[in-house]
Design a protein around this nucleic acid. Sequence first.
DNA 1: TATTGTTATACTCTATAACTATA
DNA 2: TATAGTTATAGAGTATAACAATA
Lengths: 160, 160
Amino acid sequence: MPHTKRPQTDLTPKGGLEEKGIHALLGYQLAQATIVTNEVFERVVGQPLGLRPVEFTILQLVRENSSVTPSKLAKALAMTAPAMTTWLDRMTQRGTLLRERSTTDRRAQSLRITPDGEQLVSQALALLLQTERALLAALSEGERQILLELLHKVACARPG
Amino acid sequence: MPHTKRPQTDLTPKGGLEEKGIHALLGYQLAQATIVTNEVFERVVGQPLGLRPVEFTILQLVRENSSVTPSKLAKALAMTAPAMTTWLDRMTQRGTLLRERSTTDRRAQSLRITPDGEQLVSQALALLLQTERALLAALSEGERQILLELLHKVACARPG
DNA sequence: TATTGTTATACTCTATAACTATA
DNA sequence: TATAGTTATAGAGTATAACAATA
């Protein structure tokens, strides 16, 4: 005899406030979960390696998509072209990325990761995966997979 | 004979870049999903009602926790006291919230929502729930419940 | 004409420190 | 001494508009 499963608590994770009315709001729950993952990133990668989250993601995407252009990266991360320029300035100056002219379209750039960038992002990724696994100890392996899969479905949803 | 379920695509939802290496990173998937829910909020509530996400959440939490203090709200939303002051200034000026002196501790404030605030947050909440339901059409009702529940578990996890 | 990328500039949001009033 | 809240100030991050170079 199945009955509706109810969460044990409708309280905010921090501060213990009543949150019943927004408990079913995806945007709210995403924000609350992001508080935790941001703290993890800052402690494990941000402070020790001097990397911002967006820099980490850019490094990894360039590593996996050699010769990608800034404009494609900006689309993938939903940011403007000037914002991307700022980050790429900072990262090329640090020596983790290279900007080259595209051979086929001289307006465009080909981005490549440097050996230093490779080393940095690979270290960061390992630290994050390891720490997230500890963070998600309350979830089973199956639940972790399902969570990632459902988040990906949301990210792919058309905001109609 | 169960076999590991594989996602159909390891591509970024926008731009179609390869993302296999960070596909299993919770922080990354949260950020990608948040892009979509932020777009929804901005279009459905932000622009039409002139509300920022944090203002919406503050209104709802005050509504559910009458006489809550700014400091408790700040803890629940992981923001600093000065940041909370700024938002409360803006919201009391608009007339959606009231600041009163606590009767038991004259340092503290008791926050209360006004009828205007009630009307505003209730309208926003209805619009968001309705739009999110359409957004999550690709998920079953059970999947929606599971997603919210798992996000809440993550938000409650101790970042050890 | 449209697209890639940059520069200039202003705006939003946040953080830290110093302050006051009260406990 | 510690806590609740404010003010002042600076910093991070972003957005818009105008621009140069190329398609």
